[in-house]
Computed example of a mutant assay.
Amino acid sequence: MIRPTIPEDTTALIALADATGLFPPSGLELLRQMLTNSLAKDSDTAPFWITDDDREPVGVAYCEPERMTDSTWNLQLIAIHPNRQGQGRGRKLLHYVEQALMVRGGRMLLVETSGLPELERTRGFYLKCGYEEEARIRDFYATGDDKVVFRKVLNAN
């Protein structure tokens, strides 16, 4: 079941993020702060969190509008618990986010990720979901770690 994230999900979602191994302790604390701060807001233009719930949160997505753009959004985070990956959950969660954005009048969704070899599977996921690699900024995160930007048009208004 995919649903809006509620404040009570915070602990489980931090544990999920930790299980992915992609977040250092400082990143987990930042994620906790982001969850706490943004779950207090509710509007069509506010960032939003979506949770994949299988009797407990097993997936999460966070999306926010790009400032000074015409209905462009950025998927800042999407994660599925490692023991639930490979079941199509990430694709369903991403599709749900896209549908929610179209209802809000979203025109385009951007996704940024690392160019490191260990994230090749992640980049392949976005390509399979209909995203195109739009840009690559060399050495963005660190020397040898490029930022790769993917783009998908949602509403061609």
Rank of each mutant, 00 (worst) to 15 (best):
L13W: 06
S38R: 03
L75F: 01
D53A: 03
W73I: 05
D9F: 00
L154W: 08
T10L: 09
T20A: 11
R136V: 09
D52V: 07
G21M: 11
L35I: 09
I2V: 12
L28F: 14
L127I: 14
L30G: 10
V148E: 10
I80E: 03
Y141L: 07
L94D: 11
H81S: 14
C63S: 12
F23N: 11
D139P: 07
A135K: 03
A142C: 04
P47W: 01
D44T: 02
L13K: 01
L31T: 08
F150T: 10
D145W: 03
S38L: 05
I80Y: 07
G90T: 12
I14S: 06
E64L: 06
E98R: 04
I2M: 07
E118S: 09
T143E: 06
Q85A: 03
G115F: 08
H95I: 04
A17R: 00
E132A: 13
Y62F: 10
H95M: 07
L127F: 15
E56P: 01
R89D: 12
A40T: 13
F140M: 00
M68C: 09
L16T: 06
E98K: 12
S71G: 08
D145L: 01
M108W: 08
M1A: 06
D139S: 02
Y131H: 10
F125I: 12
L77G: 01
S43C: 02
T69Q: 00
L109K: 10
A12E: 14
L127G: 07
E29P: 09
W49F: 07
T11L: 14
R67Y: 13
Y126I: 03
A40H: 00
T143C: 04
G90Y: 11
G90I: 05
L16D: 02
G106V: 04
F23W: 07
L30Q: 15
I78S: 08
Q85F: 05
L77P: 15
P24I: 06
N155C: 13
A15L: 06
P57I: 02
F125Y: 14
C129F: 00
V103E: 13
Q76Y: 12
L30D: 14
T51R: 01
M34P: 05
G27W: 15
E133P: 07
A135G: 14
L93W: 06
L109V: 09
M102D: 07
P47N: 03
L110M: 04
L13V: 13
T51E: 03
R121W: 13
R138M: 09
A79R: 00
F150A: 12
S114A: 05
G144V: 02
I137L: 13
E112V: 01
W73K: 04
L16R: 00
F48W: 12
S71A: 13
L13D: 02
S26N: 04
K147G: 04
M34N: 14
D146Y: 03
